[in-house]
């Protein structure tokens, strides 16, 4: 109930200030839409199916890019966290690559992968990869040595060591990385879709701009924000389920 009030209040605040900015700015309506125009814009692209199709395309790319990135980063992180010697060589490389915005690679990505779904997939992949890789490596190295001693004592070898000890021990710390990566990857989805594709929410933004449809531009922006929020909540839910499934007390090792 309280959240409903908060949400309603926030929505009202946004609508009022938006309307106020539109009035005060006095810009051409094709450049800056009012809330009501945007509602019509929403209705229009929902009705002709464009919005739903773009959402589907973007979510598909996002889930594919994010999932493959996260799985690979976790697997690699496990191996590299375990064998510090290799990590010692790769760590400087990762540290240099990490702060580069994935978008910077776009020309090369297009060169190598061509246009279509691939560039945005690769960008999402890159955006999610490093947070997860680094948090996995740190988590593996931070495992309480006593857990490994206990495992050794009780004759727990691979692959049980991984499933019974290592994964549950590192999960709370990896979860932070997964969360962080989700946000970053979603941000770069739009950037990835602005080039080389004719579909998706990023393309919707470019297309609206080129056609001077500020209402559709705003529609796309709002959709991206709301979807980002929904994705974030669903990963929180998933996290909770994994915690419960593995019996990990939440935040104990975090």
């Amino acid at each position: 109930m309280k959240t409903t009030i908060h949400l309603g209040g926030a929505l009202l605040l946004v609508l009022l200030s938006w309307q106020a900015i539109a009035w005060l700015g006095g810009w051409n309506e094709a450049l800056f839409p009012t809330p009501s125009q945007t509602v019509y814009g929403f209705a229009e692209i929902i009705a002709d199916g464009v919005l739903l199709k773009d959402i589907g395309t973007s979510l598909y790319r996002f889930l594919l890019g994010y999932t493959s990135s996260v799985l690979l980063a976790m697997a690699l992180g496990l191996v590299l966290g375990w064998y510090h010697n290799i990590w010692a060589f790769l760590n400087p490389i990762a540290q240099v690559l990490r702060p580069i915005s994935p978008v910077a690679w776009l020309p090369f990505i297009v060169l190598v992968f061509g246009i279509g779904d691939m560039p945005s997939l690769v960008i999402i992949f890159l955006a999610a990869f490093f947070p997860v890789l680094l948090s996995t490596v740190a988590a593996v190295r931070g495992i309480e040595p006593v857990y490994l001693k206990v495992a050794q004592n009780f004759g727990i070898g691979q692959p049980q060591l991984l499933t019974k000890i290592i994964f549950p021990a590192i999960f709370p710390r990896i979860a932070t990385g997964l969360h962080l990566a989700l946000g970053t990857a979603w941000v770069f989805l739009v950037a990835g879709e602005m080039v080389g594709t004719q579909s998706g929410l990023g393309f919707l933004i470019i297309d609206a701009r080129n056609n001077l449809r500020a209402d559709l531009l705003m529609t796309a922006i709002i959709t991206i924000g709301v979807l980002g929020l929904l994705l974030d909540s669903s990963i929180t839910l998933l996290e909770k389920r994994i915690y419960r499934r593995w019996g990990i007390p939440e935040r104990s090792n975090a």
Binding site: G155, A169, P249
Partner: peptide
């Protein structure tokens, strides 16, 4: 050296599993 993600019972069973 107890595993915090396991219940007391499952901790005691740990060595028996192998």
């Amino acid at each position: 050296g107890l595993l915090p993600w396991r219940t007391v019972e499952k901790n005691v069973e740990l060595g028996l599993e192998s």
